[in-house]
Design a binder for these strands. Structure first.
Length: 356
DNA sequence: AATGGGTCCAACCGCAACGCA
DNA sequence: TTGCGTTGCGGTTGGACCCAT
């Protein structure tokens, strides 16, 4: 037996709202408020509408100070940054953009921003792929015998971006986890810089023994304090891992401080909710090759490419994003990751235009 | 002018979380 | 603790509009 419908669908009007309906709803709410019961509201004012429909109409259209269209560059950046950090949590993203509704932002992302980024990514990838191909051809023709890569494998070998010297030294094996981690940090930086962020080179990475987090060196809080300010930590009083308010407040405070940390610590709570996000990212140029998507590589672990030794702690699909920054992990690999992060750790992104 | 495809956005739907009795 | 009604959220859809052919 299914759930009882929230309203009598047969006697409920659907489709676009008329100006009369808008006027009725707006006048009533402005005078009496919602009364704490959306379901009863349409009956009170004689509207043949579902309560949910009234709520949506009010929140997305009639509510005062709603802005429609005309997203600024700044808003674009905020949306992109937050999307990359938390995925399609439109209500949380909307909370950072006064006057914008989650529906508006969702539509804007789906119809414009995504395509904008997609085009950007593809363009850059194509041009870089072209250069890479030229170099490959040059190399293979000049030193076929010396090539590390068998000639018949050339077509299968993805483009590997240049590695930081230290990473290359630490990770002589091309597919090592260290290499990916380091490259992931660089990738994240690149993407965020593209999106308008910038990094402070002297920011610190702290490992409190359980979780890694990044913060600027001008903060004097303790690790725990910082962690609670920077990422959402389910407290003993908060039983819900999806405490959106906490997350929202947390993100809000980051913006208040004009700082924006992309931190995997936020992400475990997104488990099981980001399949679309993941596929979108794949669509944005990432299919089987993590290096194909310049700037997005950090979102994927090598296990996405190489299935050897998949470990729940190491898996980095959006079902478990916790390893983006280096969560608690019992495996040696996890410890190694943390060590590498400490060694070469990437810093938070500071949002442009804010106080430092 | 007709039309077919693409784009955009308001609104709907279903599900999960929440709150209360 | 449980069950039910309500709310909030994210994904999807339908249709209006635009533009190229």
């Amino acid at each position: 037996m299914g759930r009882a419908p929230c309203c009598d669908k047969a006697n409920v009007k659907k489709g676009p709202w008329s100006p009369e309906e808008d006027t009725k709803l707006k006048a009533y709410i402005e005078q009496h408020g919602t009364g704490g019961n959306w379901i009863a509201l349409p009956h009170k004012i004689g509207l043949k509408r579902c309560g949910k429909s009234c709520r949506l109409r009010w929140l997305n259209y009639l509510r005062p100070n709603i802005k429609h269209g005309g997203f600024s560059e700044e808003e674009d950046k905020i949306i992109c940054s937050l999307y990359i950090s938390i995925g399609s949590r439109w209500s949380i993203i909307a909370a950072q953009l006064p006057g914008r509704t989650d529906n508006d932002i969702k539509n804007y992302w789906n119809t414009r921003l995504k395509k904008k980024l997609l085009g950007k990514q593809r363009k850059e990838h194509q041009s870089r792929r072209g250069n890479s191909l030229k170099q490959d051809m040059k190399r293979s023709s000049s030193s076929v015998g010396d090539s590390m890569v068998p000639a018949d494998n050339l077509n299968q070998i993805p483009y590997w971006p240049e590695l930081p010297v230290l990473a290359a030294a630490a990770a002589p094996i091309p597919h090592s986890s260290q290499e990916h981690r380091i490259d992931s940090q660089a990738s994240m930086r690149r993407l965020l810089i593209k999106l308008g962020g910038r990094f402070s080179e002297d920011d610190h990475v702290v490992n409190d023994g359980t979780t890694l987090h990044q913060f600027p060196n001008d903060l004097s809080t303790t690790d725990q304090d910082l962690y609670e300010q920077t990422v959402y930590v389910p407290s003993s009083s908060s039983s819900s891992p999806m405490d959106a308010l906490s997350l929202s407040n947390n993100i809000g405070s980051q913006f208040v401080n004009s700082q924006f940390a992309i931190d995997g610590g936020n992400l475990p709570m997104l488990q099981g909710q980001s399949t679309t996000f993941s596929s979108e990212l794949q669509e944005m140029g990432y299919s089987n090759n993590p290096q194909r998507l310049d700037g997005m590589e950090f979102l994927y672990g090598e296990d996405m490419v190489d299935n050897r030794g998949v470990n729940p702690c190491e898996s980095i699909g959006w079902g478990d994003t916790s390893s983006l920054v280096g969560p608690p992990c019992a495996s040696e690999y996890g410890v190694m990751q943390q060590g590498m992060l400490q060694e070469y750790g990437f810093s938070e992104m500071r949002y442009p235009g804010g106080a430092q």
